[in-house]
Simulated assay, not measured.
Amino acid sequence: MSFLCATRMRGGYGGADILQGCDITVEKGEIAVIVGPNGAGKSTAMKAVFGMMSLREGSVVFDGEDITKLSPQDRVAKGMGFVPQTNNIFGTMSVEENLEMGGFLRRDDISVTIEQIYDLFPILREKRAQAAGELSGGQRQQVAVGRALMTQPKLLLLDEPTAGVSPIVMDELFDRIIEVARSGVSILMVEQNARQALEIADKGYVLVQGGNAYTDTGAALLANPEVRRTFLGG
């Protein structure tokens, strides 16, 4: 069984189901990317994996354990980290205070992990005492990812990590995401910048109307003429 195995997920927010039986799997150390048109259920699928939306059908198995009924807090304790698209930092707190908040579940010395995050995102070391809300959009995203990494997750969930940032910053964030995956952390990412995300993806999912339209390696999806024409702009 895969490290993360979310199968036949069906559910929504009270009305009609948004997810229509979609499947998402991620292996250890793998970068998996969910792409697709607006309204396809990409973020909903990620929230279902993290327990922010109850499933009407289906299951989520993580590291060999069925966690379908667990709360998001319990999933963090099991080894999931989640970075939402918005409202993902404490703006009035300093960069370092944000990272310390990320380590609230830890009972060991968190200073080593903070230094690892500063090595990953050197600009945060420079701005460690600055209020996170005063940073640029890309730097705030680095704080958000860093705070999630403070929990020492086995699986990191990223919802639109490059939304609203410049192409240069997007490339830098993707480079750092590759570094995180190389350290052994699995990545599940929702991205609107589909072409660029698939370039770094080991596995890609194209969702349409809450279901799996295409599932393949990132390279194979980029080479698929139908995927290119329909979802990647040719």
Rank of each mutant, 00 (worst) to 15 (best):
R128C: 03
M170Y: 05
D119R: 14
L135R: 07
V143D: 03
A181P: 00
E172V: 06
G184I: 07
A181Y: 03
A148G: 03
G146F: 08
V145Y: 03
E126F: 12
S166P: 03
Q116G: 03
T151N: 09
V112R: 15
F121S: 00
M170G: 08
I168V: 15
L155K: 02
I117W: 04
G137W: 09
P153S: 01
G164W: 11
E172G: 08
M150T: 04
G138Y: 07
M170E: 13
A163P: 05
R107N: 14
Q142D: 02
T113P: 00
R176M: 11
E134C: 14
L173W: 08
R125G: 04
E126N: 10
F104P: 00
R176I: 09
V165G: 00
Y118D: 03
D109A: 14
S111Q: 12
E115R: 13
Q142K: 15
T113M: 13
I114T: 05
S166C: 10
P167D: 04
V180T: 07
S111E: 14
L120S: 06
D159N: 02
A129F: 12
S111R: 15
V165I: 15
R182I: 11
G138F: 07
E160A: 06
F104Y: 15
P122C: 09
T113S: 11
P122T: 11
E126V: 12
I110W: 05
G137Y: 11
L158I: 06
R147L: 11
I123S: 15
F104H: 14
Q142N: 10
A132T: 01
I168P: 02
T151Q: 12
L158F: 05
L157T: 08
E160F: 09
I178P: 01
R107H: 13
L158W: 04
L173K: 07
L149M: 11
Q139C: 11
G133V: 15
Q152I: 12
G164F: 13
S183T: 13
P161E: 01
E115I: 09
K127Q: 12
I168N: 09
D108V: 08
A181T: 04
S183C: 05
V180L: 10
R176A: 10
L105M: 14
A129I: 12
R182S: 07
G146H: 05
R182Q: 15
I110T: 14
P161F: 04
K154P: 00
V143M: 08
A163R: 05
Q116D: 13
L158Y: 01
I168H: 09
V112D: 13
R125D: 00
E172R: 13
D171V: 13
E126H: 14
A148L: 08
V112E: 14
A129P: 02
V165H: 02
L149D: 00
L124M: 13
L135D: 03
F174I: 07
A181G: 03
V185L: 04
G133Q: 10
A163C: 06
S166R: 09
L157W: 06
D109T: 13
A163N: 09
L149I: 08
L156D: 00
Q116P: 01
L155E: 00
I177E: 01
L157G: 01
L124Q: 05
I117T: 08
A132P: 00
L155V: 02
E126W: 11
V185W: 02
G138H: 07
V112K: 15
L158G: 01
